[in-house]
Design a protein around this nucleic acid. Structure first.
Ligand SMILES: [Mn+2]
Ligand SMILES: [Mn+2]
Ligand SMILES: [Zn+2]
Ligand SMILES: [Zn+2]
Lengths: 143, 143
DNA sequence: TTACAATTCTGTAATCATTCCAAATTGTCA
DNA sequence: TGACAATTTGGAATGATTACAGAATTGTAA
């Protein structure tokens, strides 16, 4: 089982040229389901690809988003996150540790309120914010 | 009926000093339910208050958010919007004209999925993106 | 009122994620 | 191999937001 080949062909089948950079970024997204930012991806890949440019990471993620390979999450101001899981699900962002958790959300698949009759809905997002279980425990210990 | 006095006392009751700038910004938010950005508020208020600083608008909105007077919306990357309506409701953002619409969303009041047992939920947001009715019509005409 | 401290406001500089852009590199195919 | 197109690179530009330090305003007590 050669993952690199898998992702190489996945890109080719979608009509995207499977450059080394694109395959590595796609690999990273599949292997690290952490809703990373562009910067996080660059930080993790650049040791193994010293010439990798931040701009390439940004360009590639934009390309992937347009091709429907990833969905973009805007939860915190300023930083965009990328999710290789494009299915309908909700996100919980911890204010303390910054982790973004997935959760099942039937609300995203149900009917649209009549107030939006005639609107064309292209994306639906549900996100919660607060403290994750671990961080909540830690906060309690401190008081 | 003197709105200025109303908002003056509203701030005072919340323990916030009702400065001229704060009252004007609060007035604006009540009168213009457009989920404005800080920049929009500044652009609309500065003609009548030539010395108003952008920084003051940002500081005041942060203060209002901490006091629970407004809720902050992060829908588009980079720009934060402010909503004087802090009740649970969903938002639809039009990709074409940028307008942010409200809609009723029972999903925001319901039960939390068991995946988030033990989590402390502080905020819930539901937002859709796409084309509003008007923009959809315009797009169709063009083909 | 007056004086002084505390709070608020102002304007410029700094920050930082993202985008722009032109040059360099790589891929395609005759 | 040679030409042309697509992709990558890295440094500069952008733009919303924040930091900061001095100026203005307000509150308080004599
Ligand atoms: Mn996810
Ligand atoms: Mn609203
Ligand atoms: Zn946490
Ligand atoms: Zn529209």
């Amino acid at each position: 089982m050669n993952r690199t080949i898998d992702y190489y062909t996945e890109l080719a089948q979608r009509g995207l040229q499977p450059s080394v950079q694109r395959v590595r970024i796609l690999e990273f997204l599949h292997a690290n389901r952490i809703h990373p930012t562009a910067e996080q991806i660059w930080l993790r890949l650049s040791p193994g690809m010293p010439t990798l440019s931040r701009t390439t990471v940004y360009n590639t993620l934009k390309l992937f988003a347009e091709a429907g390979i990833v969905q973009t999450l805007v939860i915190e101001e300023k930083e965009m996150r990328f999710d290789i899981d494009t299915s309908h699900h909700g996100h919980f962002s911890c204010d303390r540790c910054g982790t973004v958790f997935d959760f099942t959300a039937s609300a995203l698949s149900g009917a649209v309120p009549s107030e939006l009759d005639g609107f064309e809905i292209r994306e639906r997002h549900l996100y919660y914010k607060g403290l994750c279980r671990e961080c909540r425990t830690k906060e309690r210990r401190k008081g």
